[in-house]
Simulated scan of single mutants.
Amino acid sequence: MLYIAHRLFAAHDRALGAMAARILGDAAGNDDNVFLPFCDTDEEDLVADVKGRRLFELDSERLKRLSGMLALLHGPSLDDGVCMEIGFAAALGVPVVALTTDFITYATEPDAPGWSFPDPLIDYLATDVISARMLGTASAEPSQRFTAFEDRNRAQVADAMHAACRRLVGLAQPTQGVRAMPADSQRVAFIESSPYRPSSDDGDGNGGLLRELGYQVITAGRFSARDPLAAAAADWTAATSASLLIADVSGPEAPPGAAAMIGAAVATGRTALAYNPVPAWTFAHGREPNWRNLMIQYGVSGVFSAPADLKGLVRQ
């Protein structure tokens, strides 16, 4: 199963996903092996008692048997559902090809080596990143300048998608399965802070409480590291080896790293708790209210807004 991970709350994003699915199906020689969320879950017409949860179940069922993922990523605020799915695939050893047509890149200093996405963890998790940062060539010489500009943008997207789909078809392989968690990780907790919100290095007191409960606590280091890419690798190894993940989901969306680590926890059966000190609700026709993307909301084992509430969740 080849999985298209893409933002889907706006019509133009769904159209972009459909374009990618069509090209990927052609590259694979069989579009029956391509899964496109929203389209293949019949989301607009789906009726369920709790629609968001049902959509999470349908998407997760495909994620468990995927052989490759094409992730469409654009803008400085990456879609948290897509990042959750990237983490899910990466934790199972499934190749992820990330596609971006953004013309911006990111770094910690003006002259420092950069990366493609706001959080270097996403660069680390991607098996390959296909970037198309310049406009394409117009197919003709339209007399209207806006038509010519539109044509060049379409060419940029199409060229990148064809390259990404060819790459994914060449990489696709079945899941490698879930690795056993080391025995010495049973009382290890990893705290993923939010880059969008000032906080202490232990997550506003969450680390201290966990230590009182007998946990060894490891905190994310890439946001203050001199080499963020190397630190991203270390964060991922630590997070996926710990029995408990505490992910701060503060921000306009759950931060990319938090979302990816939650996806990994879901894929490998580890406990993930969402720290959400400033809740914000979203609403969509036919769905129940969501306090975060449904892949985050139903992927975690619990959510809390103050450290005092964490103790009850950990003891369950």
Rank of each mutant, 00 (worst) to 15 (best):
233 A>R: 03
233 A>D: 01
234 A>K: 03
235 D>N: 08
236 W>S: 01
236 W>Y: 12
237 T>N: 14
237 T>W: 10
237 T>F: 12
237 T>K: 13
238 A>Y: 03
238 A>P: 13
238 A>T: 13
239 A>V: 08
240 T>F: 10
240 T>S: 09
240 T>L: 09
240 T>Y: 04
240 T>M: 11
240 T>V: 10
241 S>N: 14
241 S>E: 05
242 A>F: 12
242 A>Q: 04
242 A>W: 06
243 S>H: 14
243 S>N: 06
243 S>T: 04
244 L>Q: 04
244 L>I: 14
244 L>V: 15
244 L>W: 12
244 L>S: 05
245 L>Y: 15
245 L>V: 07
245 L>Q: 11
246 I>G: 00
247 A>S: 10
247 A>E: 05
247 A>V: 11
247 A>P: 09
248 D>R: 04
248 D>P: 14
248 D>C: 08
249 V>R: 14
249 V>F: 14
250 S>N: 09
250 S>L: 06
251 G>L: 05
251 G>I: 11
251 G>H: 12
252 P>C: 02
252 P>D: 03
252 P>E: 04
252 P>L: 04
253 E>F: 04
254 A>R: 04
254 A>Y: 05
254 A>T: 11
255 P>V: 15
255 P>R: 15
255 P>Q: 15
256 P>W: 07
256 P>C: 06
256 P>D: 04
256 P>Q: 06
257 G>Y: 08
258 A>E: 00
258 A>V: 02
259 A>K: 01
259 A>T: 07
260 A>E: 00
260 A>W: 03
261 M>A: 13
262 I>M: 08
262 I>C: 10
263 G>D: 01
263 G>R: 01
263 G>H: 03
264 A>Y: 05
265 A>T: 05
265 A>G: 10
265 A>S: 13
265 A>V: 06
265 A>E: 00
266 V>I: 11
266 V>M: 05
267 A>Y: 05
267 A>H: 05
268 T>I: 06
268 T>A: 09
269 G>A: 11
270 R>S: 02
270 R>F: 13
271 T>S: 03
271 T>P: 03
272 A>R: 01
272 A>I: 00
272 A>V: 01
